[in-house]
Structures are given as structure tokens and as C-alpha cells.
């Protein structure tokens, strides 16, 4: 069926039938493009529509859970933007997200580089990659409480320090600080940074680096001028992923950030207290921030060229 439109005889046949069944002939001629409809419909139904509903709801007031067209106002947004706390939240959220993205990038890049350039054996490449994937099958909450066993008052670190006699009292500041949050975020997102960078590194022709070297570039220069530049699409995708998953995260900060307010957390708090319109208004703010960040990051690389080649 897929290529029917390319087949000469089928094309002629459908033309003769065109007067009788214009719709069928239209479908036959455009089947190649119409195939995009099922995924598109899924996305429109379960992503675009819900988002639009949030947008609409943010213009309502009170504790409604469904859009009410008779009760439209800008009060939520006025409230959101006139509160000084909003700006503190924005600063903290953006600050932590940017930090998480940068730290993850720094940790991930050498790993991705090693796997793609220094390991010639594809089997080994695959096994290392899968070793990075396997922990994701362990539930996130379980992985996350394991930090209690590591950094907690009676955790591994304190236990070791105390049995070595290095400290008398357990160090209580190890947990529930923004640094715990950062560690957990980096750990959870590492794979999603390594993966796109690895992907874009493997698309680079190694001869480009070789030529740069013979043209007088030191290994470091060849890396910055050629390899890193060409891996930017992967870097950008990784950064976007970390940004998005951290900007909208409402569980990790609640558990580990020791009271630090975050944008995702604020949305969840309002939803929890059934003030859905306010939750919606903060969601819109979250979305604007997210899109703004993506827009800025996309200035650094043309991602599309990786996909339409």
C-alpha cells in the first residue's frame, strides 16, 4: 500500500477512477503524506488539547476544575506577577536548572566521547550504553531513597566517617540541601545527556579530525574547532532535556531540596489544594520559561539538519 502512488500502473488506474471516487484517489495520491495523521492525531488529542485546556483554565477564578467561559479574568496572572515570591521561585528554579544542565553536561560529555571515539568495538559500545540504561528499570523512588542510606544521618558516609573517628557527631547537612537536589538531578538525567551527545558524535566523520590535525591543529584545537562544534546538536538536545525535566520536576525538590521553592512544586501545591486556575496560571508561566530557555539554547545549533538529511 505504501508505495502504491509511485507505481505507474496504479497511478493510471486511480486516475480513471477519479471521477467516481475523488476521495479515494486523493488518498491514493497522498498516502505517503497522510501516514503522518495517526501520530499527529494522538499528539493533538493528548498533548495539544490538554495544554490548551490549561491555558483556558488559567483565565478562570476560584476552585473550578473545568473551563467556565462566564468567569474570565486576568486575576491569576496579576496575582502571579505581582507576588515577590514568584521572582524568588523563578530565580531559584532557573538557577538550579541551569546548574544541573551544566554539571550534567560536564559529567556526560567525556563519557559519550569515550564510548563513541575510543571504543572501536560496537559490541562493547552497546554493552556500556546498556549498562547506563539498566538502572532506569529500578524505580525512581527506590533509587532516590537510597540517598538516605548514603548521605543520611546513619548513612554510609556518616557511618564511615564516624567509625574512622574523623567526626564525633553525624554530619546532618549532607542531606536536604540544594546540593543533594543537584546530585540526584545529575544522576537521573545523566543518560539523557550522554545519549544524544553520543549519537551526534558517532555521526562525525573521523577524517574531519584527522585533516584538522594535519592542517596544524593541536588535539585540543581540533576538538574545539571540529568535534565539539559538530556535536553541538547533541549537546543542545541533552541540555534541553535536562532543563525540561528539572524545570517541571515537583517531586525531587519536595523530597530533597530542604524547603527550596520551585516552579513545578508551586504548580503542584495549587493543584493539591484544588486551586486549579492558579495551578494553571503557574503552568503557563512554567511553559513560557521553558520555551524561552529552549529558544535561547536553540540559537547554538541547528538541530533540524541532523534529522532532515
Amino acid at each position: 500500500m505504501v508505495g502504491e502512488s509511485n507505481n505507474m500502473s496504479a497511478g493510471n488506474r486511480s486516475e480513471s477512477k477519479a471521477q467516481e471516487y475523488p476521495l479515494i484517489s486523493f488518498i491514493q495520491r497522498n498516502i505517503r503524506y497522510l501516514l503522518i495523521l495517526p501520530p499527529l492525531i494522538v499528539v493533538i488529542l493528548f498533548l495539544v488539547t490538554p495544554s490548551l485546556m490549561i491555558l483556558l483554565l488559567s483565565f478562570n477564578k476560584g476552585s473550578v476544575t473545568r473551563f467556565d467561559p462566564t468567569n474570565i479574568s486576568l486575576d491569576n496572572f496579576i496575582a502571579v506577577f505581582s507576588r515577590p515570591s514568584t521572582y524568588v521561585i523563578l530565580r531559584d528554579t532557573l538557577g538550579m536548572s541551569i546548574l544541573a544542565a551544566l554539571v550534567t553536561l560536564l559529567v556526560a560529555y567525556p563519557v559519550a566521547y569515550f564510548i563513541s571515539f575510543k571504543i572501536q568495538n560496537f559490541q562493547l559500545q552497546g554493552i556500556i550504553t546498556f549498562m547506563l540504561v539498566a538502572p532506569y528499570w529500578v524505580d525512581w523512588s527506590i533509587r532516590s531513597i537510597s540517598w538516605l542510606s548514603i548521605l543520611g544521618e546513619k548513612g554510609l558516609v556518616n557511618y564511615t566517617l564516624m567509625s574512622l573517628g574523623l567526626v564525633n557527631q553525624p554530619l546532618s547537612e549532607l542531606l536536604f540541601t540544594r546540593w543533594t537536589l543537584l546530585i540526584i538531578w545529575v544522576q537521573t538525567n545523566l543518560l539523557f545527556m550522554i545519549f544524544p551527545i553520543y549519537l551526534s558524535l558517532t555521526l562525525i566523520d573521523p577524517d574531519l579530525v584527522n585533516v584538522a590535525r594535519t592542517l596544524g591543529a593541536s588535539p585540543f584545537k581540533a576538538f574545539t574547532k571540529v568535534t565539539f562544534r559538530l556535536s553541538l546538536p547533541g549537546v543542545v538536545i541533552g541540555i534541553i532535556f535536562v532543563f525540561i525535566s528539572t524545570l517541571g520536576d515537583y517531586v525531587t525538590p519536595a523530597l530533597w531540596a530542604g524547603g527550596l521553592q520551585m516552579l513545578g512544586l508551586t504548580v503542584q501545591n495549587y493543584a493539591w489544594h484544588f486551586n486549579w486556575p492558579m495551578a494553571a496560571a503557574y503552568s503557563v508561566l512554567l511553559l513560557i520559561v521553558t520555551l524561552g530557555v529552549i529558544w535561547i539554547v536553540l540559537r547554538f545549533a541547528n538541530i533540524k539538519q541532523v534529522f532532515y538529511r
Binding site: 501520530p39 499527529l40 499528539v43 493533538i44 493528548f46 498533548l47 495539544v48 488539547t49 490538554p50 495544554s51 485546556m53 490549561i54 483554565l57 476544575t65 473545568r66 473551563f67 534541553i240 532535556f241 525540561i244 525535566s245 524545570l247 517541571g248 520536576d249 515537583y250 513545578g264 504548580v267 503542584q268 493543584a271 486549579w276 495551578a279 494553571a280 503552568s283 512554567l286 511553559l287 521553558t290 520555551l291 529552549i294 533540524k304 534529522f307
Partner: peptide, 25 residues
């Protein structure tokens, strides 16, 4: 292309909350 990638870009809480509102509606 961007619409199909939107699930990647949209913050989790918006997808969750939005779906909840959508199902209610």
C-alpha cells in the same frame, strides 16, 4: 515535526495536569 517532538519539550506537570483536566472535561 515540532508538534511530534512537543511531548519531549512539554514540562511533565503540564502534561499530567492537562490530561487530568482533559479527562474530566
Amino acid at each position: 515535526f515540532y508538534l511530534l517532538l512537543a511531548g519531549f519539550i512539554m514540562p511533565a506537570i503540564i502534561i499530567g495536569l492537562g490530561a487530568n483536566i482533559f479527562y474530566k472535561t
